[in-house]
Structures are given as structure tokens and as C-alpha cells.
Amino acid sequence: MRVALVDYGAGNLTSVRKALRACGADVFTPDRPEGLTAADAVVIPGVGHFAATAVLDAAWRAAVCAAVASGRALLGICLGQQWLFEGSSEAPDVPGLGLLHGRCAHLREMAEEAGAGPAGAPGPSSDGLKVPHVGWNDLAATRPSDLLLGLAPGSQAYFTHAYAAPMTSATVATTTHGARFASAVQQGRICGVQFHPEKSGDVGLRVLANFLRQAGER
């Protein structure tokens, strides 16, 4: 299983590479979009500002779309998942890839829109919602999916982000922090996770193994 890990300068790839390798993948980092043709699956990682995705120019966008069109599996992680959508209020002028319907927004915007209010988070220290959302939180499956196959109810994953994707028909799990957002998505072979599977212990490794397994069923 040859996995192309796309490096666009948004964060450190060491942990993602290590976790994919632990799950049996042969990981490489193409320095040009044409490199994706050598891959069985494509992973777009990333942390930081949505504007960082602007490095993925027209040639990269076309190459990722071509990989998906040819039946290769795609996984976006954190900022990489957000990029699969149409865009984000974090950088309104930077278009997302648009493979998935909807736009990403700040957790506070989402909370206010949902009417919960920014101070709506219950809990022992409920003096206000802390954003960024950092730490381990629940994955609530919304429908069965290949990506989250075999995860026990109540499984938690590690998050660190301030913006998130909306709930749509692609959502396979949600997480709540002030607002409920799409913490995992799957539409055919297009997958995404807002959490960091490479930092989420056995739960995260299971998700990566699930992704690689379905990627191998091409």
C-alpha cells in the first residue's frame, strides 16, 4: 500500500508518517502533484490556518481530484479535512477543494448559530467555552462507516482546533464542544477526520488501519 502524504508546510508530518507506517503503509511525500499517480491512497494532513492550504494550487487540486476520480482513497486530517469542504470562514478568500458540500466555521460561530451560546458548555469549570478545543473528546457515530468500523461506543480521540466542518450527509461521527460538528466524514472513498488519529492511541490507529483497508479494496 503506497500512501502519498502531502506536505504543504502546514505542521510537522513526523507523527502522521510514523502512525501510517505502524499500520503497514509504505509512505512517501511527493514533491510534485504528478507524484500522486504513484500512490494507492492520498493523505492530506495539516494543522494551523486555513490560508496555509492556498499552497495547494490548481495543479495539486487537479491531481487530488484525479486520484479520487480514478478510485484512490483520500483522507484529510484536521486542516486537511476542512480543505475537502468548500471553504472556511477562517480564510474566506481561499477556496477549499469542494469535494464535500458545506463550509467550515469557528466553533464559537457554530455555537452561536446553534443557539447554545458560547457559555453553554456544561461541566465542572463551566465559566466559558475554551477555544481552541484541545484534548480528548467523544466520537458519536451517526451512521455505520468503513472508516470507523469496530470502534467501541464511547471511544475518544485527540483534538486540537478552533474551526470545524458542518454536519452534512457525509458525516459519519460528530463531536460536541460548544457546538456539534463533523468529527469524521466519509463519502465513498473520500474520508476526513477532524481529530488526530496519529495522536489518538489505539482508537486512532484503528481508524488509519480502516482507511488503509478500504483503500486496498480498489
Binding site: P124, G150, D202
Partner: peptide
């Protein structure tokens, strides 16, 4: 009543071996 991440039940769950 403090929210904490549930402890994994076994040292080597099935997901890890599947890798």
C-alpha cells in the same frame, strides 16, 4: 462526575493488531 477518557480495556486491543 469528572469527565475523563475511558481507559482501554486490554493492553493490545484488536485495532492495534489489525495494523
Amino acid at each position: 462526575g469528572i469527565p475523563v477518557r475511558a481507559v482501554q480495556s486490554a493492553p493490545a486491543p484488536e485495532g492495534r493488531r489489525a495494523c
